[in-house]
Design a protein around this nucleic acid. Structure first.
Lengths: 336, 336
DNA sequence: AAATGTACCGAAAAGGTTTTCGGCGAATGT
DNA sequence: ACATTCGCCGAAAACCTTTTCGGTACATTT
């Protein structure tokens, strides 16, 4: 089963020109819609190109133009659910043009990141998008890169870089407001690891919103891990120590799933006795649960789309810097 | 905040040569470890290259060599959990060499797929990996492409293409064997949509294994959807109609989660009263559940790694065709 | 001292495309 | 009939790197 048939050599512009009986210059102009070429000639070239299924060599084109129409996306967590929506948003925003996205996974490893950076730069990408798996600031790729860079989700520590980050303070505040507006008065917060900027920001937003209503945060913010198991444990303790609780804001959807499981096993109805909200709006978790989980969506696709636009602008000489915060939105379902 | 500082122009080999006081030819040879260059000269070139942080232009190199050191990966489901492990496996296998992976998301849309295919071919990728989200055969990209193609997870309908697919028949059979070897005798199967080759294959494997032991499949294969909700519903019916059931094989981990929830709420212990197995081994589901879920892993990273090797071989003229089945493995946890 | 060999370096071509600019033929104006 | 304009086409340069091959300078041999 070992064959060795070299596939047909790819056709070049010269082949097209020869077949159409014109020069390569004319063929090029005809194919690219330049003027200065007679309609009949153009038609001849087009059919010739079609006949031998000519595909212009982007390498040669990029070499000449100094632009390749590609951007590199270096991500820290391919397994994660953050970088993918961002990638899709970016692809969509670029899509209408002729940009392609070169994706690399550094897996949080600085060495691998450097390796991929070199690979991308040598392939002359027109720009870079750097995606992290946490909203904590991360080291900059450096100031004197030959192409513009946009940091997404994980901001750069360098103020001169441009970073796009979801506004977790606002997201947290909105989630609290949401429960308050639904009549909840005894709200608790169970979140993930304390070392994450995401947890800290959301806590800050929640506390701000609660105090603006003169309400306490029942039991204070409970830090743990980002797992269902922690959600179950924390919820068990919470309903024992604070049976008055009527709303639980969770640090992510997995914690919320754990919380949901525990409170329902304790005989509490959701949302009757207590409302529960998740964070991230990870569909497979939010719609799989019973009842379906209200959650906070960080609009990651929009984040990716904005990254694409900002990068596009920067490539065209119009670059910004600093941190841009993008709003989160609440997706109401059945647990509130 | 709108600046317009064009970043420094990238340095070329000519710059290096000038700085080192040699010709470009010598500079090239020095940098690429060719012989015919004096050690002192080579050293001069290397420091010169370092000083101006020279990065060879992969476009020019690729144009000349006819090889770009890149492969395209066209996937159908970026949101899905299948293509990502495959991508990572492929990246790992390539990683040691100097291959980079160009990822595109076609979202199951033939038009978008064609678009990306053209984009990749024009960028002169050395090969293509096509990943689908279902194991059902998919249309071939065509026989006369200028580069080799490997189809992964979703096989091509064309026997002349090379396809790499997890062996779901074996996976199903092994899962049944596993429960039987643990002493279960009344095994049921709750799976997803009937139209999926994956469901059909697994059912076939399960039925084969059961009948080889002279055991019936309790209630027959139950088809539904790939959701937790279906798992809950099907389990409720199952334990009512077949209270003798002591093992449940599920079509995926989400169904298993639903089953788990229902049987536990009915007061059955797991694995005491009934064993439960998932499929896919999606960590976030299998380890988040209580008890943690035994599941079948399709070894997707290995699949991706093999795809990379096969593609590499094909690029070097050693190509195969047909469908290769890769074994699945069982990951025992607490539900069995 | 002449001839041969060795070690190193540089000129040039190649790869495919785009763009500029000069040129050629035909049509128009006088 | 001549000059001018206009429309269209092609030659050539440019992008950057790699490789081949000829050449130079020096050391070695006879």
């Amino acid at each position: 089963m070992v064959t060795t048939d070299k596939p047909q050599p790819r056709s070049t512009l010269r082949d097209v020109a020869r077949l159409a009986g014109v020069s390569v210059a004319t063929a090029s102009k005809a194919l690219n819609g330049r003027d200065q070429v007679h309609p009949d000639t153009r038609a001849r070239v087009l059919v010739a190109a079609e006949r031998i299924s000519f595909t212009p060599n982007a390498l040669a084109r990029g070499l000449l133009a100094g632009q390749t129409g590609t951007v590199g996306l270096i991500t820290g967590d391919l397994d994660g659910r953050f970088s993918l929506p961002i990638l899709m948003g970016a692809e969509d925003a670029f899509g209408k043009g002729k940009m392609s996205v070169f994706l690399c996974d550094a897996r949080g490893d600085a060495i691998r990141e450097k390796y991929h950076l070199d690979a991308l730069l040598s392939r002359r990408v027109d720009g870079l998008i750097v995606v992290g798996s946490r909203t904590d600031p991360r080291p900059s790729l450096g100031r004197n890169l030959p192409v513009p860079v946009v940091y997404v989700y994980a901001p750069s520590t360098d103020e001169n870089d441009l970073s796009l980050v979801p506004d977790n303070v606002q997201g947290g505040a909105d989630s609290a407001e949401f429960l308050v507006s639904r009549g909840r008065r005894h709200i608790a917060h169970i979140t993930g690891e304390t070392g994450y900027a995401a947890s800290q920001d959301r806590v800050r937003g929640i506390e701000r919103a609660m105090s603006s209503h003169g309400l306490p945060l029942v039991g204070g913010a409970q830090f743990g891990s980002w797992t269902e198991q922690w959600g179950r444990n924390a919820a068990a303790q919470l309903i024992e120590q604070h049976p008055e609780v009527d709303g639980i804001l969770c640090g992510n959807d997995q914690i919320a799933r754990g919380v949901l499981e525990t409170v329902r096993e304790a005989g509490w109805t959701v949302p009757g006795r207590v409302a529960v909200m998740g964070y991230d709006n990870w569909e497979v978790f939010t719609t799989g649960s019973r009842p379906q989980l209200t959650s906070v969506d960080m609009n990651l696709e929009a984040l990716g789309a904005l990254a694409a636009r900002r990068l596009f602008d920067a490539i065209n000489g119009d670059s910004r810097s600093g941190v841009e915060l993008l709003p989160c939105r609440i997706v109401p379902r059945e647990t509130t």
